[in-house]
């Protein structure tokens, strides 16, 4: 398998504050990869560097294209869907309009995708006319995921999907992510606080600390690693 996404020595900063000090990681096509680490380690910034929502330097290759000079809309059009922390749903628009925005970069009919989306999220169909802001936090997160799916991306960037959700919803969400990966071949790079769930869903993972990659490996390797177990899995 070849890497769909490859970061080499990527740096990023917000104004004068350096957040990433040369990150290198790769995501194989068809895999789920997770990024773990404490608060402020640069997990979210890593995703933002890929999607172009933060100023970055270094080499970012996606499906043979260089992303490091592209803005977020251009990256999205190449087939990268970024579900940001806090979901990025359009609260003022309806569920239906949110889904249609997912297909903004696509031409032609999206009926096929919508039908498939409704098999994963059946409740969305009945509530398509509802204003997205009136959905619960969990529902909004599902909507964000559904919208990303309609985008038909080759790579899904998922930032803290579990934030503020009840545990039962988080489990459901990761089940769907895994399903999308297995049934649709969707490649996923997910940042997650809940390391146990993330490592269960992922094939491989990276651990960031203070803007550096300190550990990398398959999920099994990371789960067996003493440092990871002590710091992130709690046993």
């Amino acid at each position: 398998m070849t890497a769909l996404l490859e970061l080499e020595d990527v740096e990023a900063r917000y104004g004068p504050v350096h957040v990433l000090h040369g990150i290198s990681l790769s995501v194989e096509e068809g895999s789920v990869v997770t990024v773990l680490g404490p608060n402020g380690a640069g997990k979210t910034t890593t995703l933002r560097a890929v999607s172009g929502t933060v100023r970055r330097a270094g080499r970012i290759a996606f499906a043979g294209r260089q992303l490091d000079r592209l803005g977020p809309d251009a990256v999205a059009r190449l087939g990268v869907a970024h579900v940001p922390e806090g979901r990025g749903t359009f609260a003022e628009l309806t569920v239906w309009e949110n889904l249609k925005l997912g297909a903004y970069t696509r031409r032609g009919s999206i009926d096929n995708e919508l039908e498939r989306v409704f098999t994963y999220f059946p409740w969305l169909s009945e509530r398509r006319r509802q204003q997205a802001g009136t959905l619960s936090g969990g529902e909004q997160q599902m909507l964000a995921l559904a919208r990303a799916f309609v985008q038909r991306p080759r790579l899904l960037l998922l930032d803290e999907p579990s934030l503020g959700l009840a545990p039962v919803l988080v489990a459901e969400l990761f089940r769907i992510v895994r399903e999308l990966n297995e049934d649709e071949g969707l490649t996923v790079l997910v940042v997650e606080q809940n390391a146990r769930l993330a490592l269960q869903a992922a094939h491989a993972g990276y651990v960031l600390e203070a803007g550096h990659v300190v550990l990398a490996g398959t999920s099994a390797e990371l789960q067996a690693n003493d440092a990871v177990r002590r710091s992130y899995l709690g046993y």
Binding site: S51, T53, G71, P72, D73, A76, R77, A81, H82, P84, G88, T89, F90, E92, L93, L101, G102, Y104, T105, R147, Q151
Partner: peptide, 13 residues
């Protein structure tokens, strides 16, 4: 409404 989120779905804000 949300320029940042719009650019993430490919809208040229």
């Amino acid at each position: 409404l949300r320029p940042a989120a719009a650019s993430l779905v490919g809208v040229r804000v």
